[in-house]
Design a protein around this nucleic acid. Structure first.
Length: 804
RNA sequence: GCCGGAGUGGUGGAAUUGGUAGACACAAAGGACUUAAAAUCCUUCGGUCCUUUGGGCCAUGCGGGUUCAAGUCCCGCCUCCGGUACCA
């Protein structure tokens, strides 16, 4: 009978709960550590076995820090607004609140079953009015700072379903549900000016302790590029056309211009002869779904009949409309340089437009040349290279007021509203006089009203518009009639600041207390999945910087250190999903093998940041390891073995113990938990062979294992006579003098190939070792007929004899 | 296309600065214990060849290079995964 994981795990979870073992104090002498998970959306499916991977990692880190003497904040909560509960409500009429509560209860039960050391007194849910009151308040701060504005923006409108879809509900231009076409429909939206922060969001990545590739994802998303804006006069019009280009050096090669179909100048400049064709082209472009836009690579376009004047050489060049130019980037207009831009080259070929080479190199008969070269056909730039001519022409343009240096970002402003029910209502009133009033702190929370139906209104507006008594109000402050904002906030809103609420979850006079914020922030350790590496982390950083500017927080960045967690794949190596039928239910695993086995196994599978396939046999193996460790202490009847003795450990035991302490401690520093577990396995294998097992060595091992398998270790710790939980017992320290061996094996290579080996004292003289190596009998066949040219000795490791 | 990441035994993975490739496990095979099975314990376990208590050769996706020495560094490819995509 191995150890009884069910009984032990239940016992210690109860002990930790009753004793509030993991309660975090908001002050004190100890240094602090804030260790954070990405809080989950509580879905109806419950956890699958991949969820606890990251949570186990942060739990190990939290428990380790406690044993290292830190005051640890390790909280958990629920990102509980979200589409699935609303879709379920549309189908069944069940209030999303009801579904959400039920799912939260299930998630909480499952998370508690793993024995995670959360301070459950800090649990929060974004759907709780006590929480979203402050989400709304924070929005009003952002609004008052001028960072929120209304705009017409295109949404994913599905005429068939009569609803607006989230991006993730649109797959290849069709609705995920039913496969209906989705088109772009402009609707009034709230936008946040994240672009105002683009430069800081980019620059401040520099100092963050984040994986380089995650920073790179964010950099690419922000997409900074340096260039110039240049004005072109439209021939015969009192209007200028401004373009953005990263290559002002190619200005002399601009042979035509292109406007995006949405560009406001299009209708004004089209000539009478071309007006009808242009209008038709623009209509066709507007009808195109995202799917068509994405797939169509062949260039289409339409001549407007108008001409622009190239400011550098006064050439008259035609102005076209084409959908390969996007309104959302730069100015929505470009100067086309077909000789040096592949897209322009293809367009010019398609419509027989002139191609003038201005930089030598390449073969522009075959493709555009985008490399460096000598400027030609370029007047004042002739003879210069690309870099120098960019500098020269930029100066030339700005002196004459024709253009200016400009930094452009791919990052767009953040579309911050949803036409949904289950989200935070905007705390805004649209007054009769056309102004907007943000509700004051004393008017919050603005509660979600009860509705008859969760179905979309059919116009694309949220179901809230169907409740006139909620929408239409008399505003006591202004004395005017007013309409409430009917959009709700996206799920990102709640998750943008939850780490701040955890530091002060019950505060009902402020979102958080300033002193607590100074104590706990920034988050020292944040772990989550790659799927949130761009948007969530960027949005939260944006809000945090706004809070910083408002004096609400004391740090410039929220997450000092971030690590990425890989995915647990199904046994077939594919992503776990219900449809594939490869989902592993953690309830079953915990019942059969225990939470400690599951935790250990998830960590043993491989490095944290890699995707790893689940393996049922593997968890049996790790369970066997725990059973073998159990038998170091107990006999078949679970009585303490006589072999466990309170004696001074012998030298060999000390060597094994200190090596294990040393290796595991090293691996804790950079979270190489898989190899740390290997080291502990080696310890158990060694100790199993011994008839006398010094208790002090076994106790050191228990402390090392405790962050990984806490219930198991607490149980044995208690059986060894300790009255207190080991959660705050000091992490053992290795005496490195026990790591040094007296004798080491030196291997002998001839021309890099292993031929011999022998033992020498660790401090052996280099010359003596070389001599001994050369004298080895095994070497002779390989040295025969050769001259020894060189002998290299790597102390304590190897001798390499170079001979030919 | 562009930007990231990864390719090591039958499998998951080790090898921290270039220095004994395959730690630790899983699976498999054989053995011990047992009436039997499970559990446990022991042994073998990259490929190939030979004159087989031993030893040779090959081997970290492929091809080159640097080095006394390369899984590790450099150059050129291939495959897979993720992100992104007419971003001017």
């Amino acid at each position: 009978m191995p150890y009884d994981h069910l009984q032990i795990e239940a016992k210690w979870q109860e002990y930790w709960r009753v004793n509030k073992t993991f309660r975090a104090e908001d002050a004190g002498d100890k240094p602090k550590r804030y260790v954070l998970d990405m809080f989950p959306y509580p879905s109806g499916d419950g956890l699958h076995v991949g969820h606890p991977e990251g949570y186990t990692a942060t739990d190990i880190i939290s428990r380790y820090y406690r044993m290292k003497g830190f005051n640890v904040l390790h909280p958990m909560g629920w990102d509980s607004f979200g589409l699935p509960a609303e879709n379920y409500a549309v189908k069944t009429g069940t209030h999303p609140r009801t579904t959400t509560e039920k799912n939260i209860n299930n998630f909480r039960r499952q998370l508690q079953m793993f024995g995670f050391s959360y301070d459950w007194e800090r649990e929060i849910a974004t759907t709780d009015p006590g929480y979203y009151r402050w989400t709304q308040w924070l929005f009003t701060k952002i609004y008052e700072k001028g960072l929120a504005y209304e705009a017409e923006a295109a949404v994913n409108w599905c005429p068939e379903l009569g609803t607006v879809l989230a991006n993730e509900e649109v797959i290849d231009g069709l609705s995920e549900v039913g496969g209906h076409p989705v088109i772009r429909k402009p609707m009034r939206q709230w936008m946040l000016r994240i672009t105002n922060y683009a430069e800081r969001l980019l620059a401040d990545l520099e100092d963050l302790d984040w994986p380089e590739h995650v920073k790179e994802l964010q950099r690419n998303w922000i997409g900074r590029s340096e260039g110039a804006e240049v004005d072109f006069i439209i021939d015969g019009h009192d209007e200028k056309l401004r373009v953005f280009t990263t290559r002002p050096d190619t200005l002399f090669g601009a042979t035509y211009m292109v406007l995006s179909p949405e560009h406001p100048s299009v209708s004004r400049i089209a000539t009478a002869a071309q007006r009808e064709a242009v209008a038709e082209y623009c209509r066709a472009a507007a009808r195109k779904s995202d799917r068509d836009r994405g797939i169509a690579k062949e260039k289409t376009g339409c001549f407007t009949g108008a001409f622009a004047i190239n400011p550098v050489n006064d050439e008259r060049i035609p102005i076209w409309v084409a959908d390969y130019v996007m309104m959302g980037y730069g100015t929505g207009a470009i100067m086309a340089v077909p000789a040096h831009d592949q897209r322009d080259w293809e367009f010019a070929r398609e419509f027989d437009l002139p191609i003038i080479q201005v930089i030598s190199g390449g073969d522009i008969e075959r493709e555009a040349w985008s490399g460096d070269g000598e400027l030609i056909n370029s007047g004042l730039l002739d003879g210069l290279n690309v870099v120098d001519s960019i500098a020269k022409i930029s100066g030339w343009l700005s002196e004459r007021g024709l253009g200016e240096a400009k930094v452009q970002y791919k990052l767009r402003d953040w579309l911050f509203s949803r036409q949904r029910y289950w989200g935070e209502p905007f705390p805004l009133l649209h007054l009769e006089d056309g102004t907007v009033r943000a509700l004051g702190e004393d008017e919050l929370p603005l509660l979600l009203p009860e509705v008859e139906s969760y179905k979309p209104s059919g116009t694309g507006d949220s179901p809230l518009t169907t409740i006139p008594e909620w929408i239409e109000v008399d505003d006591p402050v202004s004395g005017q009639r007013a309409k409430r904002e009917s959009n709700t906030m996206p799920q990102w809103a709640g998750s943008c600041w939850y780490y701040l609420r955890f530091i002060d979850p019950d505060n009902d006079v402020a979102a958080w207390d300033a002193e607590k914020e100074k104590y706990w922030l920034p988050v020292d350790f944040y772990i989550g999945g790659l799927e949130h590496a761009v948007l969530h982390l960027l949005y939260a950083r944006f809000w945090h910087k706004v809070f910083f500017d408002l004096g609400l927080v004391s740090t410039n960045e929220p997450f000092a250190r971030y690590r990425n967690i890989g995915m647990i794949l199904g046994e077939d190596g594919e992503k776990m999903s219900k449809s594939r039928g490869n989902v592993v239910n953690p309830d079953d695993v915990v019942r059969d093998f225990g939470a400690d086995s599951l935790r250990l196994f998830l960590m043993f599978l491989g490095p944290l940041d890699r995707d790893k396939p689940w393996n049922m046999k593997g968890i049996e193996g790790i369970h066997r390891f725990l059973a073998r460790a159990w038998r170091l202490f107990f006999d078949e009847e679970n009585n303490l073995l006589p072999a466990v003795q309170d004696v001074q450990p012998d030298d060999e035991t000390l060597r094994i113990m200190h090596r294990c302490i040393h290796e595991v401690s090293e691996m804790m520093v950079d979270q190489r938990f898989n190899t740390a577990i290997s080291q502990m396995m080696i310890f158990v294998n060694e100790m199993s062979k011994r008839d006398v097992r010094a208790q002090s060595a076994l106790e050191a091992f228990l402390l090392l294992l405790a962050p990984f398998a806490p219930h198991f270790c607490e149980e044995i710790w208690q059986a060894l006579g300790h009255a207190e939980s080991l959660s705050y017992t000091r992490w053992p320290v290795a005496d490195t003098s026990w790591l040094e061996e007296d004798m080491v094996t030196v291997v002998v290579q001839v021309n890099g190939k292993l031929r011999d080996r022998f033992d020498v004292p660790v401090d052996a003289d280099a010359e003596k070792v070389k001599e001994q190596a050369l004298a080895g009998g095994k070497l002779q066949p390989f040295l025969e007929g050769k001259t020894v040219r060189k002998v290299i000795y790597v102390p304590g490791k190897l001798v390499n004899i170079v001979a030919n």
